[in-house]
Amino acid sequence: MIIEINGKKMDLTYQTAFEAREQIGNETDIVILNGFQIENDCKLSANDTLTIIRKGTMPKKAELESMMMARHTPTVHKRIKKGKVAIAGLGGLGSNIAVMLARIGVGELLLVDFDIVEPSNLNRQNYYISHLGMPKTVALNKQLKEINPFIKIETQNKKVTEANILELFNGYDIICEAFDQPEAKSMLVNLALNQLPNIKIVSASGMAGYESSNLIKTMKPMKRLYVCGDMENGAEIGKGLMAPRVQICAGHQANLVLRLLLGIEDI
């Protein structure tokens, strides 16, 4: 019976998951079967994915990636590892989207931003005090490498303009529009849809303040344009931007990217 154990396909005679653990590991090891951490023994079937993790020890690099992805729904990781996603803007949306996509193992990420980390970013953006003054591309790249060293990360420390959209984003499957200014959002969406005939854009509009979480939705207003947000609540004088709603919106964007990479185009 062919079973994948810790990332390696093996032909094994074990009948149950705990039998495999008894042979390979020890009693206190965690056992994850097809994405689910089991507490009771389960019968094994051909093509199951089994991960046996010893807590408190550093696994070999060859096993680490499969262990990190052990809680994924089976087959998801292999598919999204082929994904190429660009993130335009590394603020409240972009930095959080990048962390989520790195955690799930999207194979190639492009991080684009021209700005440096400053104190008012820390109420919602995925940076630390130690990053103050650093280019966002550098600060985020460092964190993503700590989260998942098995993905390819490219950075572009520049402003996205009408002149460089084609050059920056050509070859990517999806652009996450994660800018702050509505004019910049509109510029990127318009030009990318025009210039890149296969690109899909996952954009955001309306996540300011502390209105209900439930107002934030994922929409598909155009063939290749998805928009996440409440479509109404913009940042303005008297209405701030804070971690909870910004991260809810980033979560909508990241989950949509995951779905698109898995071939699901419905919202």
Binding site: D180, A204, G206, M231, G234
Partner: peptide, 10 residues
């Protein structure tokens, strides 16, 4: 027509 209006924030 589909018209998408973007508001600020990110």
């Amino acid at each position: 027509l589909e018209i998408v209006r973007f508001v600020g924030g990110g």
